[in-house]
C-alpha cells in the first residue's frame, strides 16, 4: 500500500471484503424488510459496524472509530430510544396501501442501482493511489490539518448547525405547561373527595413469608386482596396466588397444634 500506485489490494483485505460485504448487504436488506423497527435498527447497526471496518481497511482510521462511536454508539442508540418511545410493540404492517408504490419503488431502486453500477463500471478506475503518503504523518493529524485550514469555515458552520439542531430538537419536543400544577394539598383533597382508597395501598405478600410483588396480600379471612398487586401483572396473568397454600399451611399448623394439645391431654389422661 505504500507504493505510489497500486492495482490491487492484499488478499487478506479481499477476503475480508467479500465476507463482510455479504454481511453488509444482508444487514441492509434486513433493515428494509424486518417487520419490527427494533430488528431493523439492530440490522442497521450491524451494517454500520461492517462499514466501520471497511473505513479502517480503506485507511480512514479516524472515521472508522467515529463511525463506531457516533453512529453505532450514539445515533443508533438514539434510534432505539425513539423506537421504545413511540411503541416498541407497534409492528409495522408490510402490506402496501399505496397502489403501485411498491413496484414503482422497486423499479426505481433497481434502475437507480443499475445506473450507479453502470456509471462506476464505466469509469476507468483501474489504478489507485492509496493513502500511504497522505497518512504518513498520522491519519488524525492529516485530517486535523485539513479541517483547521482548508475546511475551517465549513467546520465552524457545521458547529453552528449542530447547536441549532440541538436547540431545534429541544424546541420541538418541549411541551408548554398550560395549567398550574396541582399542589400536594389539592391532590390530597381530591383523593378524599373521590372517596376511593384514601390511605396508602396495602403491601403485597403474605406475612413475613412472601414479599414478592406478584403475590397478593391476604385479608384476615385468608382471601387475597386485589389492591396489593399491580394491575399490569394481573392483566398478564403473572400473579402467583399463594392463598391456598397459606390456608393449607395454616390448617396443618392448627392440626399439629391440636395434635400436640391432644397428646398433652392424652398424657394428662394417662397421668390420671
Amino acid at each position: 500500500m505504500n507504493a505510489a500506485a497500486a492495482y490491487t489490494t492484499s488478499t487478506g483485505e479481499a477476503f475480508q471484503f467479500w465476507v463482510l460485504a455479504v454481511v453488509a448487504v444482508v444487514g441492509a436488506l434486513c433493515t428494509v424488510l424486518m417487520k419490527k423497527a427494533v430488528h431493523s435498527a439492530l440490522c442497521l447497526a450491524g451494517t454500520m459496524i461492517v462499514l466501520a471496518v471497511f473505513y479502517l481497511a480503506n485507511g480512514a482510521y479516524f472515521l472508522g472509530i467515529v463511525q463506531i462511536v457516533v453512529y453505532t454508539g450514539a445515533v443508533m442508540m438514539l434510534f432505539l430510544f425513539v423506537v421504545m418511545l413511540v411503541g416498541v410493540t407497534a409492528a409495522d404492517s408490510l402490506k402496501e396501501t399505496l397502489k403501485g408504490q411498491r413496484w414503482l419503488a422497486a423499479a426505481c431502486g433497481l434502475g437507480f442501482g443499475v445506473l450507479l453500477l453502470a456509471g462506476i463500471g464505466n469509469a476507468s478506475l483501474t489504478s489507485f493511489e492509496g493513502l500511504g503518503k497522505a497518512n504518513a504523518g498520522g491519519n488524525v493529524e492529516g485530517l486535523a490539518a485539513l479541517i483547521f485550514t482548508k475546511y475551517v469555515f465549513a467546520f465552524e458552520i457545521t458547529g453552528a448547525l449542530l447547536i441549532t439542531a440541538a436547540i431545534g430538537a429541544m424546541v420541538l419536543t418541549h411541551r408548554e405547561r398550560t395549567e398550574r400544577a396541582a399542589t400536594q394539598r389539592e391532590q390530597a383533597e381530591a383523593r378524599v373527595r373521590t372517596g376511593k382508597q384514601v390511605p396508602p395501598l396495602p403491601a403485597p405478600g403474605v406475612y413475613a413469608r412472601h414479599n414478592a410483588v406478584d403475590i397478593p396480600g391476604l385479608l384476615p379471612d385468608g382471601t387475597t386482596s386485589e389492591l396489593t398487586v399491580s394491575e399490569t401483572l394481573r392483566a398478564r396473568g403473572q400473579i402467583r396466588d399463594v392463598s391456598g397454600e397459606a390456608l393449607a399451611d395454616l390448617a396443618a399448623l392448627e392440626q399439629r397444634a391440636e395434635a400436640r394439645l391432644g397428646r398433652i391431654e392424652r398424657a394428662e389422661e394417662a397421668g390420671k
Binding site: 426505481c108 434502475g111 437507480f112 445506473l115 456509471g119
Partner: peptide
Amino acid sequence: VSMFGGAAVLIAATL
C-alpha cells in the same frame, strides 16, 4: 418516488 425517479432519469441522461 417521483423525486427518486426524476433523479434516476437525470443520471441516465448524464450517462
